[in-house]
Design a protein around this nucleic acid. Structure first.
Length: 264
DNA sequence: TCAAATGTTTGATC
DNA sequence: GGATCAAACATTTG
């Protein structure tokens, strides 16, 4: 569910409410979401104060006065201050004022503690929102014979891109998802970089895309799904040329594109 | 009943 | 060493 714009929206919503709060206690109930011993994690964070909340690609780092709490929302994770608890609540943080609730039906999300910046985050590529054109082009060229769509989804290449915005950025720049990344012409590679940054910015301005699960704050939905031109539009006419949008599977992910506007 | 779903990791295979 | 693919994770929805 959540890609860079959705995670950014969650961070912006939660950061002002969490910063300065003290974690009084924490309870966990999913072995999938929390891999370490529940009691040990709870003990580590009890009494700690939140000094900030930051986004690293799709990871959320809740910075404490000692250590960090790393949160990844997976596909269906929701992180809400003073949110409602229910059967899918897998972490509950009692604060000096209010509670922080983590809900996640599919339990693909993760919550873990780390002393400094965790290795998971350290090995990610540059953030998709802020990577410079030069660095993007250089990194593209260094990849031999990789298709561009799966490469955009590779968090070691750029952090933050997901299936929706990869399809949208390729549509906007007129590039076929199977195009060889290293062989993209310079103008096309530049257009892709610009399209990627632009679609992410526009999506953040719309508070993300709510297609099924994603909400921020207390049940508030994003609206960027109304502006999607490729993702999820299988069979519908392309906004630019009228050709039906096609769906293929690439790297195991549904991939939507216009066969006429997007050439290899 | 089957397929698909916005994510990541791992292991097998080319 | 890299790239690709399927599977695994757990649940809902069409």
């Amino acid at each position: 569910m959540p890609e860079l714009p959705e995670v950014e929206t969650v961070v912006r919503t939660v950061a002002p409410k969490l910063t300065g709060r003290r974690i009084v206690s924490a309870r966990f109930s999913s072995k999938h979401v929390v891999r370490e011993n529940f009691a040990r994690l709870a003990k580590r964070i009890a009494g700690r104060t939140v000094t900030g909340v930051t986004r690293h690609g799709k990871f959320i780092v809740i910075e404490l006065d000692k250590g960090n709490l790393l949160v990844h929302l997976g596909m269906t994770g929701r992180l809400i201050v003073n949110g409602e608890t229910g059967p899918y609540t897998h972490a509950l943080f009692e604060l000096d004022e209010g509670v922080l609730v983590y809900n996640d039906p599919r339990q693909f999300g993760r919550i873990e503690w780390s002393e400094g910046l965790p290795a998971r985050v350290a090995r990610l590529g540059p953030d998709a929102l802020t990577v410079t054109e030069d660095e993007f082009l250089t990194r593209l060229k260094s990849r031999r014979s990789v298709r561009i769509k799966p490469l955009l989804l590779n968090q070691a290449f750029v952090r933050g891109m997901g299936n929706i915005y990869a399809d949208e950025a390729l549509f906007a720049s007129g590039i076929h998802p199977r195009a060889d990344a290293a062989r993209l012409s310079k103008p096309r590679a530049r257009r892709l970089h610009a399209a990627m940054v632009e679609v992410l910015r526009a999506a953040i301005a719309s508070k993300g895309s709510t297609i099924s699960d994603y909400v921020y704050d207390e049940n508030r939905r994003g609206s960027f799904q109304q502006h999607l031109l490729a993702y999820g539009r299988t069979g519908e006419p392309c906004e630019r040329c009228g050709t039906p949008i096609r769906r293929i599977v690439l790297g195991g992910r549904g991939t939507h594109f216009c066969p006429k506007c997007q050439r290899a």
